[in-house]
Design a protein around this nucleic acid. Structure first.
Length: 292
DNA sequence: GGTAGACCTGGACGC
DNA sequence: GCGTCCAGGTCTACC
């Protein structure tokens, strides 16, 4: 089956795919020949399917197989729309970016969208797995979670969807430490999964929450394991760009770019992009650091 | 409010 | 092969 979804222009699927490292985390898989990607998803009906997404005139083409009903098709469309931010409007940011040489490439490359997982739960878990570890560690942790707790694709049982909150919630801290190799993140992911599974935390409602960024930030900071860096990363994924995800890389790059290599702190990193206001996070994210 | 130390793992390095 | 050191954010206790 195929589904064509329109995207607000300008749009570039490769640009979204390479907007950050998410494409390298299971169950995403980049497909070079297709100039697109695949994603294994467990639908609300419980069915596990593989989605293939490639660019099409005016938007994207989504291909998949399986015995699906209209509810399933609608769910797939809704998820892809969210994952790729197909309706996001960056025209205001583009107008500002054109006046800054280090961001002049942004409109032409259709930069702005950041690849998302279908659920905020998945993005929060993955973000926690980026904390205090090398990228190779993040890939390993997410792979372990998918392989241990994800539902299998019927056609290929070695390939799995990202686990549902209930699946992780049914586990225990020792398993998450020893088998998923989450280390000190194990209690954070377990507590999050149990709260979401029990209905005590409705993460998905935050996607559409019409509240100020500061309030949204406060809600996300209540999640154990989510600190200043993680919350800024999650806000970016949610389409709020008022904060910069300051990690060691950001400190290094901003120090070299704006402070002559002098040591800088988080406040100084934020200050370097203060003039970008609500677009601060995007200005930092797509800044052409190599154009020195 | 600010700071120090613990948390955990893998990789780099020296022996 | 083994041991040591270091990088990577967040939490907690303490001042």
């Amino acid at each position: 089956m195929e589904l064509t979804l329109p995207a607000r222009q300008p749009f570039s699927l490769p640009t979204v795919i390479h907007s950050h490292g998410w494409i390298r985390l299971a169950p995403f898989e980049e497909i070079q020949d297709l100039v697109g990607f695949s994603y294994i998803d467990q639908l609300e009906s419980g069915k596990v399917i593989e989605l293939h997404i490639q660019e099409a005139p005016g938007g994207v083409l989504v291909s998949y197989s399986g015995s699906l009903n209209q509810t399933d098709h609608s769910e797939i469309a809704r998820k892809i729309f969210w994952m790729l931010g197909l309706d996001q409007d960056f025209s205001t940011f583009y107008n500002l970016a054109q006046k800054e040489p280090r961001l002049a490439q942004v409109p032409g490359r259709a930069q702005g969208r950041v690849l998302r997982s279908p659920t905020l739960f998945e993005d929060v878990v993955k973000t926690i797995c980026t904390v205090n570890t090398a990228w190779s560690g993040t890939i390993r942790m997410v792979n372990n979670l998918v392989n241990l707790f994800g539902a299998s694709l019927p056609a290929d049982e070695s390939r799995r969807a990202f686990p549902l909150p209930a699946s992780i919630a049914a586990s225990d801290e020792a398993t998450l430490r020893s088998q998923a190799k989450l280390g000190f993140r194990a209690p954070y992911v377990l507590e999050l999964s149990r709260k979401v599974a029990a209905g005590d935390l409705d993460l998905e409602a935050l996607k559409a929450a019409d509240i100020p960024t500061s309030q949204l930030r406060q809600r996300l900071l209540e999640i154990k394991g989510v600190g200043d860096y993680a919350v800024a990363n999650l806000l970016m994924l949610l389409g709020h760009y008022d904060y910069i995800p300051v990690d060691t890389w950001a400190v290094k790059m901003v120090s070299n770019e704006f402070y002559n290599g002098e040591p800088v702190n988080r406040t100084q990193v934020e200050a370097a992009f203060e003039s970008w206001g609500e677009w601060k996070g995007l200005a930092y994210w797509f800044w052409d650091w190599n154009n020195a």
